[in-house]
């Protein structure tokens, strides 16, 4: 790994100032960034640790919305997000216990790995990603594999999840990496159902609009029977073909719906 300067500010303002340097990058839990730096895929001149900023940690619930600080770890969400059980369950399935003790929700969303779990929850919940400068709707935030609407030096300070009436996460795990081979998050709100799928598409996390319409009309696994996810944009790798992943999208959505209803 190439060397870098390490700074650990205690406020968002100081972190934003430190990130003005072109060579600077934010560091949260580092569970993706550190391995990629070891491979020299990433070589920041300065790493700005966000973990010294107390204001970015913690979970609160108010008016049906769960707000999770950007550097809240997966382990904390798994243990404390009682008001949104499907989200707590999802967090408890990420990686392994050691990864969950370091990895953070803000880091996961900013990285937008095409097989990561949190993007599915954020998109299916219609979450709002709060940064140091603005609020971004999840529908606008995810812009393809490893790509988001974040500007250089912009920091995720919190994520706001409207708590659904019911929700379920079905993850078909790639057992070596424990990332999602394909995973589906279904969230049922008073004004409709949202379905988000991760691990499957070359474009990263996406909403399955046809399933949302069908489930909003009739919330049952049978409502999906006539639908199919096209395989053309799906990922093919040694773990599964595009057709296999497309099939999983439907199967897992059905399982999620059955688990709720």
């Amino acid at each position: 790994m190439y060397n870098f300067d390490f700074v650990k500010p205690s406020t968002v303002e100081e972190a934003v100032a430190a990130l003005q340097d072109d060579e600077a990058q934010p560091l949260s839990g580092g569970q993706t960034l550190i391995p990629s730096m070891k491979q020299r895929l990433n070589a920041p001149g300065t790493l700005v640790s966000l973990l010294g900023i107390e204001a970015l940690k913690g979970i609160s619930v108010s008016d049906g919305v769960m707000t999770i600080g950007g550097t809240t770890t997966h382990a904390t969400v798994a243990a404390q997000a009682d008001a949104y059980p499907a989200l707590a369950y999802l967090a408890g399935q990420i990686g392994d216990p050691a990864v969950r003790n370091r990895g953070t929700i803000g880091g996961s969303l900013a990285n937008n790995d095409p097989a990561a779990c949190y993007p599915a929850a954020a998109l299916a919940s219609g979450a709002t990603i709060v940064t140091n400068t603005r609020e971004i709707a999840a529908d606008d935030f995810f812009q393809g594999m490893f790509t988001t609407d974040l500007e250089e030096g912009e920091i995720i300070t919190a994520v706001k999840f409207p708590i659904p009436e019911a929700a379920n996460y079905q993850k078909f795990e790639q057992p070596a990496s424990r990332f999602a081979l394909t995973a589906v998050f279904v969230a049922k709100y008073a004004d409709g159902v949202r379905v988000a799928i991760t691990g499957a598409s070359e474009e990263g996390v996406f909403r399955w609009a046809e399933a949302e319409d069908a489930l909003s009309n009739s919330f049952s696994a049978e409502a999906l029977s006539a639908l199919a996810v096209p395989a053309n944009d799906m990922i093919t790798d040694l773990h599964g073909t595009a057709e296999y992943r497309a099939h999983l999208c439907k199967v897992l959505t059905g399982r999620a719906v059955s688990a709720i209803s």
Partner: peptide, 11 residues
């Protein structure tokens, strides 16, 4: 518990 190969000493 953490993986000490994936955490900087400075942290």
């Amino acid at each position: 518990q953490v993986k000490s190969c994936s955490m900087f000493a400075a942290e």
